[in-house]
């Protein structure tokens, strides 16, 4: 559940706003606008973009409303179309049969098989509706901390990549290792091994 819920699960990242920016809010709004979610383009199995946590499915992202106090709040929207395996198997088998009959052959060359698979998958992708996933983000611009409302490592990877592409800043996860490095520096951590409390 995201920002609007009553129970929150989130991961934290360090992402400092670039130094020397005179209008931080304006910069965030511009980047969000450039990389906002655009409704699907034919043929793509996955689309990703920023949207509003308040109206994630609205075609118009009111980016100005994403600034709230010290925070920039927005959502990462991923629309993904997936062709069910069974469906792909069925239509691929039909296409293969048709091709072999037309050519009068009994076995398909590997390359043809691959091309048929790509064609069938593309054709089916156009008929499958994309499933949206919305994950909220709150970026404390003052502290340089991002709250990402998911703890799934797969989604976190998508988020880090898209955030980097958008803002040109790689959000660094605040996990025990990076936090320890922040306190002690890499030299003190070198050679540190697990300790036992009972032996």
């Amino acid at each position: 559940m995201g920002i609007l819920g009553s129970s929150y699960s989130f991961s934290c990242f360090r992402a400092e706003v670039p130094e020397g920016l005179t209008d931080v809010s304006g910069w965030v709004v511009r980047v969000l606008s450039t990389h906002s979610f655009r409704e699907e383009v034919e043929g793509l199995s996955k689309r990703i973009g920023w949207t509003s946590p308040f109206e994630p499915f609205s075609p118009q992202f009111d980016v100005a409303s994403s600034i709230l106090g010290d925070f920039a709040i927005f959502s990462m929207r991923i629309d993904e179309r997936k062709v069910p395996r069974a469906l792909l198997k069925k239509y691929l088998a039909l296409e293969e049969l048709k091709y072999m009959e037309e050519k009068g052959i009994k076995r398909l060359p590997r390359l043809v098989k691959k091309k048929l698979r790509e064609r069938v998958e593309f054709m089916l992708l156009q008929k499958v509706l994309p499933v949206p996933t919305i994950i909220d983000v709150a970026w404390d611009l003052e502290e340089g901390i991002v709250y990402f409302f998911s703890t799934s490592s797969k989604v976190i990877g998508e988020f880090q990549g898209f955030f980097k592409r958008s803002f040109e800043i790689m959000p660094e996860p605040l996990i025990p290792y990076t936090m320890a490095e922040g306190v002690g520096g890499p030299d003190l951590l070198r050679g540190l091994t697990p300790d036992s409390f009972v032996s």
Binding site: Y8, S9, S11, T151, P173, L174, I175
Partner: peptide, 13 residues
């Protein structure tokens, strides 16, 4: 809190 990532799960006020 999970030890692996120190992430926050099911925070309720």
């Amino acid at each position: 809190i999970s030890s692996k990532a120190l992430d926050f799960h099911g925070l309720k006020i």
